[in-house]
Design a binder for these strands. Structure first.
Length: 836
RNA sequence: GCGGGUGUGGCGGAAUGGUAGACGCCGGGGACUUAAAAUCCCCUGAUCCUUGAUCGUGCGGGUUCGAGUCCCGCCACCCGCACCA
């Protein structure tokens, strides 16, 4: 070949078209080959691909292409998580229809992905806003309703009175709506719920099998599900009522000195009905903030009622409080207060001068030891507790539960932190909930034959509120049961439902139902699922829930959809700011020696921390501009180099230039294949065989940065070597090893120096096991653990020989300096350590 | 507060208990060139009495012939959850 430079501006597109025409990445579910389903979390079509997407999809792409070379039939699909708020915001701000906005973003982003050369099966592409997709979702929702997993109840929500919509907790900032700035109200609305709590145990247990998930994510989900075991029992109140409470520390029951209920507990509410003071107190509780900082410093507040609660063992009357720190939606909304062994109770008791009794001590002799300003929640022996005295905490827990159950006043229970999933959203751009409200028949499901319930196109965002609700005709329909006048449900489903089953639809796309279980079984579970850790709980828990639920409903055989999960780090960049604190983008600054200056004004720029690329900090680099300049392969290589994939990757101009230089280095090397070359180069051949094995291992372990380093090493060695048959082999090997990572230059080289059609259809190179073994090794010689010399010895040399060689070393003798050799440790093929 | 992670040159990072710093970036020197770009070669942890030696993987101990790696105790930073009874 004569070209001295690899030109991605022509080559990239040529090979992308070639793969497209050959259908190289179309997955065949009828193939006999072993199957690999490689999936990256599908993007929200926000408008443009960012570097985070590029990194995410490059990792998946390397795996997909590698698996294909390894003889697997690979499913590597792409689609669009296309419902959501930004589309409605665009509609409100710019008057574009959300659908139109979304679809044009999809087109733009698809073109961008294609320019990066990802090995995607575009024949399976869909967007969740396609009526075909959300229609099937509606069908699944109805199936779940049939199975008793969907219900409706009234629930408190954040209501923005100006925008007339429900806000997510994240959208409430300092008690105000994030868009309108209006004071957010708490409102009770009828909402649809999915019964995820029915699966709390299954979802927790299932985590145990997910060995290839990051420990961190498993723990986050475990904590989120929040299993706790304890005793639920009822106090007899002096008012004649029963008050159920829940405790995880029944062993401390003799230390209880008060009972407290939440402000919105029925007992508190009924007291409020009679007393102005109680009403005022409850109001005060509700005003308390809920941010972390506020909770940290929040004062414990209590209102002492005239009611007392009878202790189940001692019969003593305990005062009943209404307290701000008791939560209505955990346990029973009421607690027994044991100040000695719970920090909150301790603070509360101190403030309201309640007795603080010790009922657990590290030693029985310390039964009367005073507290040192805080509760002791640790383990120990139970004291001052009648029949429990002398028992361990664990024994005492069991004993109290046994007695409560025997005497019928309480029982051991499991309480979960996990709440049912409220899926109602008062929004337009989502999956319409397929139900009809009939005055006569109540809430009636839409018959499946009438699905999809499609969103109306002609909508109006000029006014705040849900456009579906005020649409002139859309919601008016007839009741499927009685045929009378009825109204459609105008709420739509939370967008997280869309991403809870999309991986099933990628695997199987029948027209008449959501998926075909047999087809799904061919591909699932997903072999590698790659995405950001920000989805560790919500998306990943919901997707597991849907899969478990569909399995329990008999619609699927898989329970866990993702066999292995990988959470990749973010792409970060330095930040630049002017003296007045305003941020500058990387292309507004110029390097001036060690420092940076603002190009326009020439004023010095302060460089800030290396943080995630974000528009607000202006430290964003647009992938398109980089690809335009350096080509897809250099960008892909950068995404894989240096940082381990789970850590953050700092973007740098010099880094991408280094990658570009390497692309050109490879190009020159590929040009050095010498058809007439003869002779061998065993050392280089060995390195090539070793690299074949090592790079494969690194890719399989997702240690792309190490694979990259190996390829650099082999490239360096091949460049320096004399022409030989083995050198030709090494060069062709490099071409194959880089194929999953830099597929364009690999194809271009393959067309010239390879055999066969496309390199994407080539197998991973074979290695010769005999060539992995070195015949000479470097032995380190230590004296008292410190390196003194190195020597070369034949592989597998006898221990005695190595010892003799080591002692013969002049440097070693100088270090020993005549001392008596007491011991010699020989590690074959590695080192000799002489101890004096 | 609870849970988890990370800490190695100027920077990103390598290193089955066995030669710490592979590989990349930055920097320095040189070659080629009228010059520049590109490319190639060499150097690049610190210190010193520089043919060599000493120190060096957040800090302090320990185990070991040998510790970045294992154990104990700290520190710092990052992330998640959090008045969860």
């Amino acid at each position: 070949m004569s070209d001295t430079r690899f030109d991605p501006s022509t080559a990239d597109g040529r090979w992308q078209r070639a793969w497209g025409e050959a259908g190289s990445f179309v997955a065949d579910s009828d193939s006999d080959k072993p199957k690999s389903y490689i999936l990256e979390m599908f993007p929200y079509p926000s408008g443009r691909i960012h570097m985070g997407h590029v990194r995410n999809y490059t990792m998946g792409d390397v795996l997909a292409r590698y698996k294909k070379m390894r003889g697997h039939e690979v499913l590597h699909p792409m689609g669009w998580d296309a419902f959501g708020m930004p589309a409605e915001n665009a509609a409100m701000e710019r008057g574009v229809h959300p659908g139109e906005w979304t679809r044009s973003n999809v087109e733009a982003m698809k073109a961008q992905l294609k320019r990066i050369g990802f090995a995607l099966d575009w024949t399976r592409e869909f967007a969740t806003c396609d009526p075909e997709y959300y229609g099937h979702e509606q069908a699944l929702f109805l199936d779940m309703y049939e199975a008793g997993l969907v219900y409706r109840r009234s629930s408190e929500v954040n209501w923005d009175p100006v925008d007339m919509t429900v806000l997510a907790n994240e959208q409430v900032i300092d008690g105000k709506g994030w868009r309108s700035g209006a004071e957010v109200e708490k409102r009770k609305l009828d909402q649809w719920f999915l019964k995820i709590t029915d699966f709390a145990g299954d979802l927790l247990e299932g985590l145990g099998d997910l060995e290839d998930w990051p420990e961190k994510v498993r723990l986050m989900q475990e904590n989120w599900i929040g299993k706790s075991q304890g005793l639920e029992f009822s106090f007899d109140l002096s008012s004649g009522e029963q008050l159920p409470v829940y405790t995880t520390r029944p062993d401390t029951i003799f230390g209880a000195s008060f009972v407290a209920v939440a402000a919105d507990h029925p007992v508190a509410q009924s007291l409020a009905a009679q007393s102005e003071d109680v009403r005022a107190f409850i109001e005060k509780c509700k005003r308390g903030g809920t941010t972390a900082a506020e909770l940290e410093t929040a004062e414990k507040l209590g209102y002492r009622t005239a009611i007392t609660a009878k202790h189940p063992f001692t019969g003593e009357p305990l005062p009943l409080f209404i307290a701000n720190f008791v939560l209505m939606d955990y346990g029973t909304g009421a607690v027994m207060g044991v100040p000695g062994h719970d920090q909150r109770d301790f603070e509360f008791a101190t403030k309201y001068e309640l007795p603080i009794a010790r009922v657990v001590a590290s030693d029985p002799a310390d039964a009367d030891k005073p507290f040192t300003g805080e509760a002791e929640s640790g383990d120990g022996m139970v004291v001052n507790s009648d029949f429990l005295n002398g028992k361990s905490v664990e024994e005492a827990k069991a004993e109290v539960i046994t007695r409560a159950e025997r005497d019928g006043w309480g029982e051991g229970t499991t309480v979960w932190r996990l709440r049912d999933w409220g899926v109602s959203r008062q929004r337009y751009w989502g999956t319409p909930i397929p139900f009809i409200h009939c005055d006569t028949c109540g809430v009636v499901p839409v018959p499946k034959a009438q699905l999809p319930v499609e969103l109306p196109e002609n909508i109006d965002f000029a006014e705040p509120g849900n456009p579906l609700d005020r649409h002139a005709t859309w919601k008016h329909t007839t009741c499927p049961k009685c045929g009378g006048e009825a109204q459609r449900e105008t709420d739509t489903l939370d967008t997280f439902t869309n991403s809870s089953w999309y991986f099933l639809r990628f695997a199987s796309q029948p027209e008449n139902r959501p998926f075909d279980p047999e087809e799904v079984a061919k591909w699932l579970p997903v072999e590698h699922y790659i995405g950001g850790v920000e989805h560790a709980i919500l998306h990943l828990l919901y997707a597991r829930f849907w899969t478990h639920a569909l399995a329990r409903m008999g619609m699927l055989d898989v329970k866990e959809p993702f066999a292995a999960l990988f959470t990749q780090g973010m792409v970060t960049h330095e930040t630049y700011a002017l003296g007045d604190g305003s941020w500058l983008s990387p292309d507004e600054v110029r390097r001036d020696g060690e420092d940076y200056v603002h190009i326009e004004s020439g004023t010095p720029v302060t460089t800030g921390r290396v943080i995630k690329m974000s528009k607000s900090k202006k430290n964003v680099v647009d992938p398109d501009a980089i690809i335009e300049r350096y080509g897809a392969d250099a960008v892909r290589w950068f995404m894989l180099s240096d940082s381990p994939p789970e850590r953050d990757l700092p973007w740098s101009e010099s880094g991408i230039e280094g990658c570009w230089r390497f692309v050109q280095r490879l190009w020159r090397l590929f040009d050095q294949i010498e058809p007439a070359a003869t002779g061998e180069d065993k050392v280089l051949a060995r390195k090539a065989h070793q690299a074949i094995v090592a790079v494969a291992e690194d890719i399989e372990a997702l240690s792309f940065n190490k694979a990259v380093a190996r390829i650099y090493e082999l490239t360096g060695a091949a460049e320096k070597a004399e022409r030989s048959l083995d050198r030709n082999f090494a060069i062709r090997t490099i071409m194959h090893l880089i194929a999953p990572m830099m597929p364009h230059i690999a194809e271009e080289a393959h067309a010239r120096i390879g055999t066969g059609d496309l390199i994407v259809d080539e197998p991973w190179p074979e290695h010769d096991p005999a060539m992995l073994v070195e015949d000479e090794v470097t032995i380190a010689v230590q004296h008292k653990g410190k390196l003194r010399d190195t020597l070369t010895a034949p592989k597998g040399a006898a221990k005695d020989d190595l010892e003799a060689l080591a002692l013969a070393s002049e440097k070693v003798q100088r270090s020993i300096d005549g001392a008596t050799v007491r011991k010699v440790i020989v590690v074959p093929d590695r080192l000799v350590n002489i101890v004096t």
